[in-house]
Write a protein that binds this DNA or RNA. Structure first.
Lengths: 353, 353
DNA sequence: CTGTTAGCGCGTTCAG
DNA sequence: CTGAACGCGCTAACAG
């Protein structure tokens, strides 16, 4: 294997000089830089990240801590996009990436977890989907031993940054669009309801719509933000808001829908998967209610019915997280980064290719 | 960070002794082993894999080379299962894992690729979905510089193993089941056809069924095996086999179906995604043809219609690949490993949870 | 059976 | 601006 030594020999300079041009140090003359670069090309030299990590104090191995809550494998898409975005960006920045699943560290004490990461020469960690209940990880964040970037959790300190989209705004936007769109469409639902219940609900409708909001997990960071968005919207549009906890589970959303859809006008879901569960339930109940989701996963294109949903680019978010981690490792202060989102409807024709 | 030195000090032995018990070397007395183990526990010591990799000649870092042909993100599920299976098994065996996408090494020469892997101290590589056209990787396999395990490609040499399911048999099985099931069900299709075309096809049916087989990529390893399975079946059941190249693309399968489904009795697809494309096309054409797929991805549960498909456990395959790589690195000879498959129908009720 | 020693490939002082 | 020398944490002969 060709090492820095070979490059030094070929360029007729010292090893440390090669190291310096490799790491863009100042105080190297253009002439020697050229020589070294040429030698590197000729020898096809690629610096050994493993050795670099061992040698340098601020080494550059980062862990991707993936919370694979994927009850349904259908949303592996999200994790895969996270991984892909991070891995590509990491290569660009010459970072070594170590993918780690939550299951690999759960039940471990802080001391063990710290030892584990240190044993891997890991200095930076990206956490995908931190749960509010995860005491150990929260302690890890507080301790500031590692540089950390949190996806979808708004914790910031001088060693920790946060990256996510504006959850509150996004939920507000997609819900508002779904509700108002439906108001324009007409009164089919009102008619249906009045027939069902045998009473006029024109009055009810004119006063306020009843919204079934199927939320995510209790005490979840994103969940709370999204609920805030819903509450604001409810106030503005004078809506009756019924909140149920779907736990991001398609099945639970399904059951909640069976139980409560009859007494509601619109179903807003905090995830696409739950939206799909709700939609399928509605179809089985043979009633129509507008439904919207959150995430923009491809699966939405396959379920037949189109729904509004929030599209966030998971790979872009993840790539940005790597960049933020990189900045932290360069001793920048932690900060919160808000990335953009869009409202979309996924058609089968759009996702097929 | 606690290092082997600290352990040695605490256990009152030499560093190398600690290293020996760490790596299960012989010639260490039970007494000192105990002492060392205790010190390790007390200090929460985890050996630094990076340093180990640098030092040892047969280091244990493996690359996962992922061919993310995922035109549709809906099948990220497969890659994610691959990754998950490999990563968990790798942790079990104390291997360092480096996920690499094909896009990161494409356009590189062999020399560059070798340099890249060596620079990462990688000694073993798992290739997911090797294309027959990938000259560079084939050369890499021939050269036997790295230990390699190929998923879904039957190349074997003393440094290379192959892991896959029996593609020919699987395709044969699922196609046979789909075709014969349909024969038992009755003549709805025959009737429909005869009405459409205004002629009796009872005679045709009694002689031979016409099968549209939507295959994968030309020159693909799995594709060729699966076609063999279809040909054998065609011979046994006296079928007319029409083979079209779907390139594993949902869209192409859709177009092929539009073009040829009318003149066929059954549509057999070499992947679930293509099966979904075919099925959706059939629904739009408003005709019925039995369809089956291959892979067993969760998405199949969402498309409404049930189909037969081949379920293979991607995580199990991947985990096994890691084990095989481990054996190769322990200087075992390469070999071919066939893993089991099953025929399933995916219901929505089965995949939801 | 145990300890000593020499690297693995690289980053980093600190003299020159 | 350059180079010699040391060490990161660990493995692997080799001595004892």
């Amino acid at each position: 294997m060709v090492s820095i030594k070979d490059v030094a020999k070929r360029a007729e300079v010292a090893i440390s000089t090669v190291s310096k041009v490799l790491n863009n140090y100042p105080n190297v003359s253009e002439g020697t830089k050229k020589k070294v670069r040429q030698a590197i090309e000729e020898l096809n030299f690629v610096p050994n990240t493993v050795a670099a990590a061992l040698s340098s104090k601020h080494n550059f191995r980062i862990a991707l801590l993936i919370n694979t809550i994927t009850q349904t494998k259908a949303i592996d898409e999200i994790d895969m996009q996270y991984l892909s975005g991070a891995i590509h960006k990491a290569k660009e920045l010459n970072l070594d990436v170590v993918p780690i699943f939550f299951s690999m560290i759960e039940e471990k004490s802080i001391a063990e977890i710290i030892a584990y990461f240190q044993s891997q020469s890991i200095t930076g960690i990206i956490v995908y989907g931190l749960s509010k209940d995860d005491k150990v990880l929260h302690k890890l964040i507080e301790r500031q031993i590692f540089k950390m970037v949190l996806i979808d959790a708004p914790l910031v300190n001088s060693a920790t940054s946060a990256v996510w989209v504006n959850q509150k705004q996004a939920q507000y936007d997609v819900a508002k669009k779904t509700i108002t769109e439906n108001m324009e469409v007409g009164h089919s639902m009102a008619e249906e309801l009045s027939m069902e219940k045998g009473r006029s609900i024109v009055e009810e409708l004119s006063t306020s719509k009843r919204i079934l909001y199927i939320a995510g997990k209790k005490n979840g960071y994103v969940t709370e933000e999204r609920i805030k968005g819903m509450k604001q919207l409810a106030q503005e549009l004078n809506l009756q808001l019924m909140i149920q906890w779907g736990e991001f589970s398609e099945l639970q959303a399904r059951q909640i829908t069976f139980a409560h859809a009859h007494s509601c006008d619109v179903v807003i879901c905090a995830s696409d998967l739950m939206a799909i569960g709700a939609m399928k339930a509605l179809m089985e109940m043979d009633i129509f209610r507008p439904v919207c989701g959150f995430d923009g996963i491809t699966l939405m294109g396959y379920v037949g019915k189109q729904m509004n949903t929030i599209r966030q680019s998971f790979s872009a978010i993840s790539a940005r997280a790597v960049e933020e981690l990189w900045l932290l490792m360069k001793d920048q202060e932690g900060r919160e980064v808000i990335l953009p989102h869009t409202i979309v409807r996924l058609h089968y024709e759009d996702i097929i290719c």
